[in-house]
């Protein structure tokens, strides 16, 4: 059997009396694309820093590529590609120089660094910007450059902490495309996100994290199947009337969630549920039938929305 790339048992991180990560267990196999899904402050980034061995765990165990993360920081990071939540490119250097100096930090000879920097500029679709100043790049370009930089050492594992937060939809799609290519090439991807569509697109398997704990684990499909119906009907009656309408809809679908601005009716057949709503003499201002997503899973598990 192939050695696991990452193995955590009862992994815990405390800052004084605050427990950021509370005894979590997970395993990540080589080539897997694994996600931590949860709201801000759930402990995702702390977990990522512990995997990168830049944050030491308080208790439990954490092995990365067969090495104890608390004792082997530099040796582990030599084989990781780290994309932090906030870009930390050197804005005093040009695009190509950023790749060059970073590649050197992994002990690569100059010739190899030059070759890889050129290839990765192609990969990141930044070849035309090679001599541009970093502060002149758009947010999406900086993110792609950060990803290209993290690939300079041909990492076994890529850690991506909220890779597309703050990007516009088009930039997100370009970035996802690059990450798909990485996934196809067999690189292990570990990412955190609070976007359910990102998790669904990129992750083979994920854990839902809330308040430092893992509340569910599985593939996106499995999680949706286990914790939600196939479809969801969203109806709006107006802010003041949603609560009252919910009472009159009792019995339609498997479950009804009342959100401040809308009602969610969980039913495998959304259209049928909408007809049932009409039959009870209720006429929503707007209605929408959609497929269930990880957002619904999160809502079911925690009673809260992912993006608050």
């Amino acid at each position: 059997m192939q050695q696991l790339h990452i193995e955590a048992n009862q992994l815990t991180k405390r800052y004084g009396s605050f427990t950021a990560v509370d005894g979590i267990d997970f395993e990540i196999a080589p080539g897997e694309s694994f996600g931590f899904l949860g709201p801000n402050g759930a402990g995702k980034s702390t977990t990522m820093r512990m995997i990168a061995a830049t944050s030491l765990r308080s208790s439990g165990s954490l092995d990365v590529l067969g090495l104890d993360a608390n004792d082997n920081g530099p040796a582990i990071r030599a084989q990781l590609g780290i994309v932090p939540q906030a870009d930390n490119l050197d804005e005093e250097l040009r695009v190509w120089d950023n790749l060059f100096v970073y590649g050197r930090y992994f002990g690569l000879p100059r010739k190899v660094v030059r070759q890889r920097a050129d290839a990765l500029l192609d990969f990141a679709q930044l070849q035309q910007k090679r001599q541009a100043r970093v502060d002149a790049l758009s947010g999406g370009m900086k993110r792609r450059l950060t990803i290209a930089r993290a690939l300079m050492n041909e990492p076994k594992i890529m850690l991506l902490d909220e890779p597309t937060t703050g990007l516009d939809p088009q930039a997100r799609h370009v970035l996802w495309d690059r990450l798909f290519r990485l996934k196809d090439s067999g690189t292990t991807l570990v990412l955190t996100t609070h976007y359910m569509d990102e998790a669904e697109q990129l992750c083979d398997r994920l854990v839902v994290v809330d308040e430092g704990k893992i509340v569910a684990e599985g593939s996106p499909k499995e999680l949706i199947r286990t914790y939600s119906t196939r479809e969801v009907l969203e109806v709006r009656f107006g802010t003041a009337k949603n609560e009252e309408a919910a009472g009159r809809l009792a019995g339609i679908g498997d479950r009804i969630e009342v959100l401040p601005d809308r009602l969610l009716v969980y039913d495998d057949n959304g259209e049928q549920a909408l007809t049932a709503v009409g039959e009870r003499g209720l006429h929503p201002v707007t209605s929408l039938v959609r497929r269930a997503s990880l957002e619904d899973v999160f809502l079911r598990l925690t009673g809260r929305s992912l993006i608050e």
Partner: peptide, 8 residues
């Protein structure tokens, strides 16, 4: 912070 994320 960039250097920290390498083998340095």
């Amino acid at each position: 912070l960039g250097m920290r994320d390498t083998a340095l």
